[in-house]
Simulated assay, not measured.
Amino acid sequence: MSVPLPGEGPRAGQVRAMFDRVAPSYDLLNRVMSLRIDQAWRSRLLRELAPKQGEAMLDLCAGTMDVAAMARRRVPGLTIVGADFSFGMLSRGVRKTGLPAAQADALALPFQSRSFDLATVTFGMRNLDSWEAGLRELARALRPGARLGILEFFRPETAGTRVVHVAINKVMVPVMGRILSPDPAAYRYLVASMERFASRPEFEEGARRNGFRDVRGETLFPGMCGLVTAVRA
Rank of each mutant, 00 (worst) to 15 (best):
Q103T: 06
D20S: 03
E204T: 05
V166G: 02
L148Q: 01
R47F: 12
L128C: 08
L180D: 08
E132F: 13
D84A: 11
F116T: 02
M18I: 04
M1F: 07
S193G: 03
A159S: 10
A146H: 03
P6V: 13
D27R: 01
G226L: 07
A23R: 13
G145R: 04
L180A: 02
L142M: 10
P156S: 12
S115A: 12
L180Y: 09
G145T: 04
C225F: 11
N127S: 10
Q39L: 15
L49M: 15
D84E: 11
R95K: 11
A146L: 04
A68E: 12
P24V: 02
L46V: 06
F212N: 00
A17N: 08
S43R: 15
I80L: 14
T79F: 11
R31V: 07
S86E: 07
Q103P: 02
G206A: 15
R92Q: 15
V171R: 14
R42V: 07
M65F: 10
C225A: 15
L135M: 14
S43D: 13
R162E: 06
G88M: 14
T161A: 06
V121H: 04
K96M: 00
L128E: 05
P51T: 07
L99E: 08
D66H: 13
A192F: 08
L60K: 02
R72H: 13
A139D: 09
Q39V: 10
L220S: 04
E55D: 04
R155W: 06
E195S: 03
V171T: 11
T229V: 11
L29W: 14
A104N: 05
R95I: 00
S181P: 11
A23F: 15
A12F: 05
A69K: 14
P222T: 09
A68K: 02
E157W: 03
T120H: 08
A198W: 01
R42H: 03
E137M: 04
A12R: 15
T122W: 00
P100C: 14
V3F: 13
A108Y: 06
G223M: 06
F212V: 01
V121W: 02
R232C: 06
E205P: 00
D105I: 07
M224Q: 05
S113G: 13
L118T: 01
F87R: 13
